[in-house]
Design a protein around this nucleic acid. Structure first.
Lengths: 116, 116
DNA sequence: GCGGTATTTCTAGAATCATCGATATAATGA
DNA sequence: TCATTATATCGATGATTCTAGAAATACCGC
């Protein structure tokens, strides 16, 4: 996974409707749920929901599987875990969370500053 | 923090340029770095960078502090930690990460399915 | 106050996005 | 085959975003 993929996934989740969809799907576990369930649950028109679902599918956070006339949607847990891991490692690694790393940060400041 | 705030922060990070800005800032630690540093480092025009920085500031992921003529930007580690925590708890809690929870998921499926 | 550096605001065009009704497609059962 | 259910695609519209040059602003040292 690269920065671009991460950004696309974050963008996909960066919309209240899609975030609600994804959260609802996560809560249905690996069983997933049909589109109609999400539609009733979230009160979103079918065409709008379909549009948002496609985005989530495009970036690999959701999968669909047809069962007769209904489409079962599932959150892709592996993809989400990978995403969270990459975000944490790539963008937040060595976070001075303990607030005690100020000293070395200050030391590194000037060195970093002039990197053209 | 609510879903709306989370969505806005994810949207802010869901752009390659802004994600790169944030990552660069995280790597400068609590010392932070001036706008000009980011500008040279990422090769982004000043007006464009300023536009993206404002977004990151709006959602609370970045702060700015003036030091003479330069503006020091800093990633807000607390906000980011809170964001990651909320995302994990609210949207990924009880993820069947171990892939062994299929049974109970199946059991919960029908119950969840018919919720209005 | 003036010149210089750092950064923002203004502006505008192109591109993308969100929304949703209408229509089309897929699968099933009678 | 036909009606029905479930869902996607089409199409149009308004809103938002991204980009970046030009102009304006903030701060400092003299």
């Amino acid at each position: 996974m690269d920065l671009d993929t991460l950004a696309k996934r974050l963008e996909a989740l960066g919309n209240v409707t899609r975030l609600a969809v994804f959260r609802a799907l996560v809560r249905t576990g690996r069983a997933g749920a049909p589109v109609g369930y999400l539609q009733r649950r979230l009160g979103v028109p079918g065409s709008t929901l379909s549009h948002h679902l496609r985005k989530l599918i495009e970036v690999g956070l959701v999968t669909q599987e047809r069962q007769a006339t209904t489409l079962i949607c599932r959150a892709d847990f592996e993809a989400m875990t990978e995403t969270l891991g990459f975000l944490g490692n790539e963008c937040c690694r060595d976070l001075p969370l303990c607030a005690s790393a100020a000293a070395e940060d200050a030391a590194a400041e000037d060195a970093d500053r002039d990197v053209a």
